[in-house]
Amino acid sequence: MNDKPLVLIVDDDLFMLDFIFDALSETCNVITAENGKTALQLVQQQRPKLVLADVKMPEMDGYELCRQIKNDFDISDTPVLFLSALDGIEDRLQGFDVGGEDFVLKPTNPKVLQAKVAHVLQLIEERQQLKSQAQYATNTAMLAMVSMSETSLLIEGIKRFNNCSVPLDLAQALISAITLFEVDSVVELILSEGSSIAINARGPASALETSIMHHMSTMDRITQFKSRMAITYPHIRVLISNMPEHDDDRCGRLRDNLAILIESTEYRLEALNIMMKTRERDITIAATIKSLTQALSQIDQKQREGRTSIAIILNNITSRIEAALVGLQLTERQESSLVNIVCHGLEEVSNTIIADADFQDQLSNAIKALQNTINNA
Rank of each mutant, 00 (worst) to 15 (best):
E156K: 15
L170H: 04
R92G: 03
P204N: 10
E335N: 10
T179R: 13
T373P: 00
A201M: 08
I158E: 09
A137K: 11
A366M: 09
E245W: 12
G157F: 06
P204D: 05
S227E: 15
E34N: 14
Y267W: 11
G62Q: 01
E305P: 00
S227D: 15
N257R: 13
A286Y: 06
L325M: 15
S176P: 00
S149Y: 10
P234S: 06
N2L: 10
I31G: 01
P58V: 05
M145E: 14
S25N: 12
Q371K: 13
N109L: 05
N316V: 11
N273E: 15
M1L: 04
G157Y: 01
P110M: 07
K290V: 00
K56G: 00
T223D: 04
T151G: 01
A311T: 01
S364D: 12
F15Q: 11
L50E: 10
T218W: 01
N35Q: 07
I283G: 01
D184F: 03
N372I: 03
Q46E: 14
T331Q: 07
T223R: 03
I190D: 08
A287G: 02
A366F: 09
G306H: 14
N351T: 12
S319F: 04
D13Y: 03
L24R: 07
C251I: 05
S152G: 11
S241P: 01
S176L: 13
S291K: 15
A369S: 10
R202W: 00
C343E: 12
L180C: 09
Q114A: 14
M16H: 08
I75M: 06
L269Q: 07
M148F: 12
L113S: 07
I289K: 08
F19I: 02
Q298P: 00
Q41F: 09
D361V: 10
L6I: 06
L86E: 12
T373I: 13
D54A: 09
V349W: 01
A134Y: 06
P48I: 04
Q133C: 01
S195F: 03
S206P: 06
T293A: 13
S25P: 02
E270A: 00
L328I: 13
P110W: 11
L24Y: 03
R228A: 11
G194P: 08
V238I: 06
N340S: 14
I190Q: 12
Q360I: 03
R67G: 05
L50K: 03
S195P: 04
D169E: 15
V349Y: 02
Q172G: 02
L330H: 05
S84A: 06
N139H: 06
V51I: 07
K70V: 05
D11T: 13
S192V: 09
K56F: 03
M229H: 01
I175H: 03
L180P: 03
